[in-house]
């Protein structure tokens, strides 16, 4: 990657973030959705009493931890799709996409810029959601917070790659809000199953080393590697179609 490529990609990321800071069109709906859903889930599935007394837990609580992990990732999944659907909206508003397609920047740079902007939005949502979940579902990870953040970051790479790619496909259709989840969800299933499993292991008290040795961890790493590269390569054909 040349310095020019990185500098132009950085310029595009800064543009997306600046536009978002001024317009606040994407992040507030994502955060509001995630926060509201987490509140609803907390009321719908109150924590079992034994969860509040860690000494008393083991078996019964593990099932609940699985549910909390699933709640967390499903909330992130749909909050992310809300944001991804807007990925190319600001380019479409007054034809900026035409001007952007003519700049001498490799298409993978355009993809990377959009993906990094989306990653930032998802990370902000997660920064709000993780402490909210910790409070609402009464879990304290101690030192495992770092491991959880690592797993979350790893899952985000694949999630954002797929979301950004399919957002570019959906942007070329009339009913893009419907098309995006239809395209993205089936592809994201294995990534999110792995994310549930790894998160529930961490919530159950396993350390990063134990979690990293699981097959699910390998699935996330492989998913990231394959889909991040494939999405960057395919993006060129989608955007120029």
């Amino acid at each position: 990657m040349s310095r020019g490529f990185l500098s132009k990609t950085g310029t595009l990321v800064a543009k997306d973030l600046r536009v978002e800071l001024r317009g606040r069109d994407t992040l507030p709906p994502m955060v509001a959705f995630a926060f509201t859903v987490s509140l609803l889930l907390a009321f719908a599935a109150p924590a079992p009493p034994e969860l509040r007394e860690p000494d008393a837990l083991p078996l019964g609580a593990v099932g609940f931890i699985d549910v909390v992990a699933a709640f967390f990732w499903i909330t992130i999944l749909f909050a992310g799709l809300i944001g991804f659907a807007r990925t190319f909206e600001l380019e479409r508003d007054d034809g900026a996409i035409d001007a952007l397609l003519l700049v001498p920047v490799d298409r993978s740079g355009l993809f990377m810029a959009k993906a990094v902007a989306n990653l930032t939005f998802v990370a902000v949502v997660q920064a709000v959601l993780l402490p909210t979940f910790a409070v609402l579902f009464h879990f304290d990870l101690g030192m495992s917070w770092f491991a959880l953040i690592g797993v979350v970051a790893l899952v985000d790479v694949g999630f954002v790659s797929i979301g950004t790619l399919f957002a570019s496909v959906a942007a070329q259709t009339r009913s893009r809000e419907l098309v995006l989840p239809i395209l993205a969800l089936p592809v994201l299933v294995p990534l999110f199953i792995a994310a549930f499993e790894l998160t529930s292991d961490l919530l159950a008290g396993d350390g990063l080393q134990a979690v990293a040795s699981r097959g699910w961890f390998g699935i996330v790493v492989a998913f990231d590697a394959v889909f991040a590269i494939a999405a960057a390569l395919v993006f060129e054909f989608v955007i120029d179609a």
Binding site: K15, V19, R22, L90, D94, G95, A96, D98, A99
Partner: peptide, 9 residues
């Protein structure tokens, strides 16, 4: 026909 500019900038 369209400006190709970002309205928020």
């Amino acid at each position: 026909h369209r400006s190709g500019l970002y309205g928020r900038l």
